Measured scan of single mutants.
Amino acid sequence: AEKTGIVNVSSSLNAREGASTSSKVIGSLSGNTKVTIVGEEGAFYKIEYKGSHGYVAKEYIKDIKDE
């Protein structure tokens, strides 16, 4: 099942092309942005936001229960 997560940073969080800190940054998400978690790979979540996919470090995403 898809989960919703909240970007848990004070400034912004980089979204990357792949599940690695050396992957190209494809965008950034500001704190408290809601994202859909579609998968996980190592220390990263694969997320969907406004129709695009990217990878973000798990430690900066807070899971919330689907309402």
Score class of each variant (00 low, 15 high):
Gly27Ala: 08
Lys24Thr: 07
Ser22Glu: 13
Phe44Met: 03
Leu29Lys: 02
Ile26Asn: 03
Asp66Gln: 12
Lys62Gln: 09
Leu29Asp: 02
Lys58Cys: 05
Ile26Trp: 02
Gly27Cys: 09
Ile37Trp: 00
Gly39Arg: 01
Ser10Phe: 09
Thr33Ser: 11
Gly5Tyr: 06
Val56His: 01
Ala15Lys: 01
Ile6Arg: 07
Ile61Pro: 02
Asn14Ile: 15
Asp66Gly: 10
Gly54Ser: 06
Lys50Asp: 09
Ser30Ala: 14
Ile64Met: 07
Ser11Thr: 14
Gly5Thr: 03
Asn14Tyr: 14
Gly42Asn: 06
Lys24Pro: 13
Ala15Asp: 04
Val56Leu: 04
Lys58Trp: 02
Tyr55Ile: 02
Glu17Arg: 04
Tyr60Asn: 06
Val7Asn: 03
Gly51Pro: 01
His53Cys: 08
Glu41Thr: 07
Gly18Asn: 10
Glu17His: 05
Ser52Asp: 07
Phe44Cys: 05
Ile6Asp: 02
Ser10His: 10
Tyr45Ala: 02
Ser20Leu: 06
Ser30Phe: 09
Lys58Glu: 01
Ser52Val: 13
Ser30Glu: 14
Gly42Met: 03
Ala43Trp: 06
Thr21Glu: 14
Arg16Trp: 15
Ile64Gln: 05
Lys34Tyr: 09
Ile6Ala: 02
Ser52Ile: 14
Arg16Ser: 07
Thr33Gly: 04
Leu29Pro: 01
Lys50Thr: 04
Gly42Thr: 00
Ser10Pro: 12
Thr4Pro: 04
Ser23Met: 06
Gly39Met: 04
Tyr45His: 02
Asn32Thr: 07
Asn32Pro: 05
Lys58Asp: 00
Lys62Ala: 11
Ser22Gly: 10
Glu48Asp: 07
Lys50His: 11
Lys46Asp: 03
Glu48Phe: 11
Thr21His: 14
Ser11Phe: 10
Thr36Ala: 08
Lys62Cys: 12
Val38Leu: 12
Glu48Asn: 10
Ile64His: 05
Ile26Val: 08
Ile64Cys: 11
Arg16Tyr: 15
Gly27Asp: 04
Leu29Thr: 02
Asn32Ala: 08
Ser52Glu: 08
Asn32Trp: 10
Glu40Ile: 06
Ser20Thr: 10
Gly54Gln: 04
Val35Trp: 03
Val25Pro: 05
Ile61Asn: 00
Val9Ser: 12
Asp66Ser: 13
Ala57Asn: 09
Gly39Ile: 02
Asn8Lys: 12
Asn32Ile: 06
Lys50Met: 13
Lys24Val: 07
Gly18Thr: 13
Thr21Cys: 15
Tyr45Asn: 01
Lys24Phe: 05
Gly5Asn: 02
His53Lys: 05
Glu67Ser: 12
Ile64Glu: 06
Ala1Ser: 13
Ser11Cys: 15
Lys3Leu: 09
Thr33Phe: 06
Ser52Ala: 12
Ile26Pro: 00
Lys3Cys: 13
Glu2Trp: 15
Gly39Lys: 02
Glu40Trp: 04
Ser52Tyr: 11
Ala57Gly: 10
Asn8Gln: 09
Glu41Met: 07
Gly31Ala: 14
Val9Arg: 05
Asp63Phe: 14
Tyr60Ala: 09
Lys24Gln: 08
Gly31His: 14
Ile61Ser: 00
Lys46Cys: 09
Val9Asp: 06
Ala57Asp: 11
Val7Trp: 03
Val35Ile: 08
Ser28Val: 14
Gly51Met: 06
Ser28Asn: 09
Thr36Pro: 01
Ala15Arg: 02
Ile26His: 02
Gly42Gln: 03
Lys46Trp: 05
Gly31Met: 11
Ala57Lys: 11
Asn32Gln: 10
Leu13Pro: 08
Ser23Asp: 05
Ile26Gln: 02
Ser22Ala: 11
Tyr55Pro: 00
Ala1Lys: 14
Gly51Thr: 05
Gly31Lys: 13
Asn32Ser: 08
Lys62Ser: 14
Ser23Cys: 11
Val25Phe: 06
Gly31Asn: 15
Thr21Phe: 15
Ser12Asn: 09
Leu13Thr: 11
Ile6Asn: 05
Asn14Arg: 08
His53Leu: 10
Val56Tyr: 00
Ala1Glu: 09
Val7Leu: 06
Glu48Lys: 14
Lys24Ile: 07
Ala1Thr: 13
Gly54Val: 14
Glu48Cys: 14
Thr4Ser: 10
Asn8Phe: 10
Lys58Gln: 04
Gly18Trp: 12
Ser12Trp: 13
Ala1Tyr: 14
Ser20Asp: 12
Ala43Ile: 09
Ser12Ala: 09
Val7Ala: 02
Glu67Phe: 12
Ser22Ile: 08
Tyr60His: 11
Thr33His: 05
Ala15Glu: 03
Ser30His: 11
Lys58His: 02
Gly39Trp: 03
Ile37Asp: 02
Asn32Gly: 15
Ile37Asn: 00
Ser22Trp: 07
Asp66Thr: 14
Val7Gly: 03
Val7Thr: 06
Thr21Lys: 10
Leu13Ile: 15
Ser11Trp: 09
Glu41Leu: 07
Thr33Asp: 09
Gly27His: 05
Glu67Trp: 12
Glu2Tyr: 15
Glu41Ser: 08
Thr36Ser: 08
Gly42Leu: 03
Gly27Thr: 06
Asn14Gly: 07
Ile37Tyr: 00
Ser28Ala: 11
Gly31Ser: 13
Ala19Trp: 04
Ala19Lys: 04
Asp66Arg: 08
Ser20Gln: 06
Ile61Trp: 02
Ile47Gly: 00
Ser28Asp: 05
Lys62Gly: 12
Glu67Leu: 14
Ser20Ile: 04
Arg16Val: 08
Glu48Trp: 11
Ser28Tyr: 09
Lys3Gly: 05
Ser20Cys: 10
Lys34Trp: 09
Thr21Asp: 13
Lys62Leu: 12
Lys34Asn: 05
Gly54Thr: 05
Thr4Val: 11
Ala57Leu: 15
Ala57Met: 14
Ser12Asp: 08
Val35Ser: 00
Asp63Glu: 13
Ser11Pro: 10
Thr4Cys: 13
His53Met: 09
Ile61Gly: 01
Ser12Val: 12
Asn32Leu: 08
Lys3His: 08
Ser10Ala: 13
Tyr55Glu: 01
Glu59Pro: 03
Ser12Glu: 12
Ile61Met: 03
Ile47Leu: 02
Gly18Ile: 06
His53Trp: 14
Asp66Glu: 13
Ser23Gln: 03
Leu13Val: 15
Asp63Ala: 10
Asn32His: 11
Ala1Ile: 14
Glu17Asp: 10
Asp63Gly: 08
Lys3Thr: 07
Ala15Asn: 03
Ile47Arg: 00
Phe44Pro: 00
Lys24His: 07
Ile61Leu: 07
Ala19Ile: 06
Glu40Gly: 02
Ser30Tyr: 10
Lys50Glu: 11
Thr36Gln: 09
Ser28Lys: 12
Ser10Lys: 12
Glu17Met: 05
Ala57Glu: 15
Gly5Asp: 02
Gly51Tyr: 04
Glu2Leu: 15
Lys50Pro: 01
Arg16Met: 15
Lys34Val: 13
Ser23Glu: 04
Gly5Gln: 03
Ile47Cys: 04
Ile64Ala: 10
Leu13Ala: 13
Glu40Ala: 05
Gly27Trp: 14
Ser12Arg: 10
Lys58Gly: 03
Val56Met: 01
Val56Glu: 01
Phe44Thr: 01
Asp63Leu: 15
Glu40Thr: 06
Tyr60Cys: 14
Ser20Trp: 06
Lys50Gln: 13
Glu40Tyr: 03
Glu17Lys: 06
Ser22Val: 08
Arg16Ile: 06
Gly54Cys: 08
Glu67Asn: 13
Lys34Gly: 04
